[in-house]
Amino acid sequence: MTIQEIQEEIVDEFSMFDDWMQRYEYMIELGKSLPLIEEKYKVEENLIKGCQSKVWVHADLIGDKLAFSADSDAIITKGIVAILIRAYSNQHPTDILEADNKFIDEIGLKEHLSPTRANGLVSMIKQLKMYAIAYQTQLD
């Protein structure tokens, strides 16, 4: 599936809920399916700055696709990063760089998109794209 198709699928899933509590509960549920980062990658360089909770993200190049793994010490943050990774993992770096993030708004998590919000969703997206840039040059 393309990034856009996955994003639409996520938006579809979230549209079943009519209040924030159900959305958050689902997000927390998704957090539990996050492809966990290996302990050895839980290091300072992989820590995303700008979050009140700790978030580590790691990327592996498999063929010409990027596979992300991550973890966080806060469960809501873990849910958010799980949603992002579901959309962006196992995709070509160029596609990751070209993707937009409107779906975050559409699933009712807009409040997390503010750059001043301490959860660092914006920093997470930036980090995923940084990995994409790094590996894109490697592929070229």
């Binding site: 924030w20 509590m21 958050y24 009140q52 909770s53 010490d73 806060a74 469960i75 809501i76 943050t77 301490a118 959860n119």
Partner: peptide, 21 residues
Amino acid sequence: GLHPYDIGTIVDKLGIAVRTG
């Protein structure tokens, strides 16, 4: 077992302003 940030986020959704961090 819970992160203060998670607690703060949920209670904020319920209209309650506390500080976390």
